[in-house]
Design a protein around this nucleic acid. Structure first.
Lengths: 333, 333
DNA sequence: TTGTACGCGTTATCAA
DNA sequence: TTGATAACGCGTACAA
């Protein structure tokens, strides 16, 4: 049998109320009884039952996190920021892998709701209205990370994808490149797919570089799709001196195809990625990439949520800063 | 105000007991009332409160996972297996980053205990007796993954590190290599450090290759340490045709140093890694490595735990199979 | 300063 | 087939 507050009370010859007061630092007890009680607690190794506590305080000190896939560097880094910050504030985090296309989103939202989590963080929500409605109807404080909603005013934390892609492209242009291919994300992704292509095209236009639509290939952010797109570019014998990939994984894919084809990086081809995950740091050669502050995004998501939970402050959306991390895959020409 | 079982009972003109019975499929009610109740539940969107439920059933359908760092491919992959399997069985998982040296281990064990988790999975436990004692004293079903305890009989799931390192070394020997350097893990790590070195040395001995202790360098499994070790080897002008690294990250580090020094892989140097994480798949050239079935280890950890929790079966330790994944970093000489 | 007693939302035990 | 009601472990008015 587990030790309960009653056992402590009995052994210390006080009431449970007194023990509770001491446990919660509510005052209204003598130093003497406090010591007596603490001694008992220590001796018998009492730990309070957070479940019972949650029932009455109506809070579980838990936040739920929806990620498509924890085993991706991208989400792992965000999760890292979330977990650290949550722990610092006495919160625990339960992770939920929503899977491809977010097909487990609805199921998890229900789970989290019935588990009475105090807040929910959703990363890269698949933009289905059904999902957005479900988030709202949980009535639990929620925040989106690296995604947003067009239909509803759900608070979010992300970088400006359009602007970031613009910066990356501009960077390449300033390095003297004019024939820049783009390996983009999903063509139907209104968050991380299309805007990045738009940013790329805008930069090209602003610097008077003619846009060649054939230089734009659509993948799905994965390494494999990066390989496929780069191969397509090569097979079609396109002429380009640089490629901007919409994710580090796709950039690594293009690095691989270049390697297989004896194309030397950055001498014969420059490439810049997007995200600045571990992958980028450890690639060969180290990848120049557009950094998203992933850890900080996780951090801020939690702190916004906690402010809302404890102080009732409303959550405001945040556009995080991005920057280029220069490593060894871009050459000035 | 949240909708409770009482609201449902009231609206359906039945008692809460009946609603509860229906919710739990306990039988003892007419099809008619069931329909009536289900209709109400559907209409007002009732969800049961798992917190209140847990208080009485004394189970939370939650398992806690201790990892040193989620943002490492190695742990992320294990976590992936854990989360998938847990979800399939109606369990949620709360992740806990124990940090460098596992310094948050004790704190998290207390958190998990007071949250009444049904089971605990500990990956790569820092081998301090203090930690092992703490695990036991929670009296919660627990299992170690990719680690073990010498002092206590805590069940574990891991590959045989000694044997695996032996296989990797033997593989290199069979490819004609005799001057094989090893970039090992921590010298004081009795689990993943020393045994892998022993396996390496044993293979060397068995195939009559003289051991050169100077060819063994100790890192800490990280990319950076891989770089440092490989640089050391080069600076000391050691003569070797292959290196066996005790982690993929360290292998990638040596790949990087080779690249910087114009050493072509695998023509001038062969390297094999350990783990078979994403890192290995996406490296350039793709890394030949000793695979640990990380996802499956997470899977089995959960299913063992659940068997223990629901059926009371005792958890047995499992040695998982390992195998060499041949990619492009080893050349027959 | 301390204790009594009720309530949180659910399940389990009786009795009807 | 159904319903009252007592737990579960804790927090908190209220009373003492």
């Amino acid at each position: 049998m587990k030790i309960t507050i009653k056992d402590v009370a009995k052994m210390a010859n006080v009431s449970v109320a007194t023990v509770s007061r001491i446990l919660n630092n509510l005052g209204g007890y003598s130093e003497e009884t406090k010591e007596k009680v603490m001694k008992v607690i220590d001796e018998i190794g009492y730990q309070r039952n957070e479940i019972a506590r949650g029932l009455i305080t109506k809070s579980t000190n838990t936040i739920g996190v929806l990620v498509p896939n924890v085993s991706t560097n991208f989400y792992a880094e965000i999760l890292n920021g979330i977990e650290d910050t949550a722990h610092k504030n006495g919160y625990s985090v339960v992770v939920c892998n929503t899977g491809i296309g977010g097909k487990r989103t609805l199921a998890y939202l229900e789970v989290l709701s019935s588990r009475q989590v105090d807040g929910i963080i959703i990363t890269s929500l698949t933009p289905k209205e059904e999902y957005e409605k479900a988030i709202i109807s949980t009535r639990i404080p929620s925040i989106l990370v690296s995604t947003m909603s067009f239909r509803y005013q759900l608070p979010f934390i992300k970088v400006d994808d359009r602007l970031a892609a613009y910066s990356a492209t501009k960077y390449l242009i300033e390095k003297g490149h004019r024939k820049i291919a783009m390996i983009a994300g999903n063509e139907d992704d209104p968050i991380a797919g299309i805007p990045r292509v738009e940013g790329y095209m805008q930069a090209l236009r602003d610097y008077n570089v003619t846009i060649d639509k054939e230089l734009i290939r659509y993948g799905d952010f994965s390494y494999e799709s990066g390989i496929k797109c780069m191969r397509g570019l090569l097979e079609d014998e396109k002429d380009f001196t640089a490629v901007f990939a919409a994710s580090d994984d796709m950039a690594i894919g293009t690095l691989y195809v270049a390697y297989k084809n004896g194309i030397s990086i950055p001498d014969e081809l420059s490439v810049v990625g997007y995200d600045n995950t571990m992958t980028a740091q450890m690639s060969i050669p180290p990848l120049t990439t557009l950094a998203q502050p992933l850890y900080e995004m996780g951090e801020r998501a939690v702190s916004s949520l906690l402010k809302k939970i404890s102080k009732g402050e409303s959550i405001e959306s945040i556009i995080m800063p991005h920057k280029i991390i220069e490593r060894d895959t871009v050459k000035k020409i």
